[in-house]
């Protein structure tokens, strides 16, 4: 474990807590894309399949349980909670996210480190996570006024993988044979997808204005 990866995990945890806080306290999921939340639930379900077969540390297992539990409970809240589900803008959240799942699965079947069931699904989860934010970014561009919590949620979610990139550079420099191109490229693409959001988020923070993405 290094400081970059710890910062990445804490940022990721913070993004999940911000979203749970928003949904649980003000009972609203306005501006949040259910499609992105569903994709993230699939990402964690396919990435943490080894939670029962391999144990690395209490921290590792605990964080996996937190990410699995939070992502599925957010989907549950947005789909079934009587108050929250009414605040979900179904008409705006129209990204065909299933069109993201299939190409990622096909790509994982073509490009992976080992052709085993767990490894292919794990690789699939990497590719899917890289594009999982797209429905949310599209929804943000359609929603005129983005509330602070939703903006912070997306900002933290984008930032965590950026810290992971620093972690991979650090591990590449300090650990022999630590080379994982698939993880690195997927992580880089994922972070780059946030580039324009980060730009407008920073602008709104600098000019102390409401965050608005150009349509």
């Amino acid at each position: 474990m290094n400081i970059f990866r710890l910062a990445g995990d804490m940022t990721h945890l913070a993004s999940v807590l911000v979203l749970l806080l928003k949904i649980h306290t003000i009972k609203s999921c306005a501006g949040v894309s259910l499609k992105t939340q569903e994709l993230y639930a699939i990402v964690f379900a396919t990435r943490y399949l080894d939670i029962f077969t391999s144990f690395y540390s209490i921290y590792n297992t605990l964080m996996k349980l937190i990410f699995l539990g939070s992502s599925f409970s957010i989907v549950w809240y947005m789909r079934y909670h009587k108050t929250v589900r009414r605040t979900y803008d179904r008409e705006q959240d129209t990204f065909r996210h299933w069109f993201l799942v299939l190409p990622c699965l096909l790509l994982a079947l073509l490009i992976h480190e080992k052709f085993t069931f767990l490894e292919v699904l794990w690789t699939f989860s990497l590719y899917l996570e890289a594009v999982a934010i797209l429905p949310q970014l599209v929804l943000l561009q359609r929603t005129r006024n983005i509330d602070n919590l939703t903006g912070q949620y997306v900002f933290l979610l984008g930032g965590y993988r950026g810290f992971y990139i620093l972690n991979w550079i650090y591990r590449y420099l300090t650990e022999p044979h630590f080379v994982h191109w698939i993880t690195w490229i997927a992580g880089l693409v994922q972070t780059l997808l946030y580039a324009d959001f980060f730009y407008y988020y920073f602008q709104s923070w600098k000019n102390n204005k409401k965050l608005q993405l150009p349509a």
């Binding site: 995990d9 080894d50 690395y56 540390s57 590792n60 964080m63 996996k64 480190e113 992971y164």
Partner: peptide
């Protein structure tokens, strides 16, 4: 058996 890639990252 090839040493499986340590998946110690989240």
């Amino acid at each position: 058996l090839t040493q499986s890639y340590k998946k110690d990252e989240l």
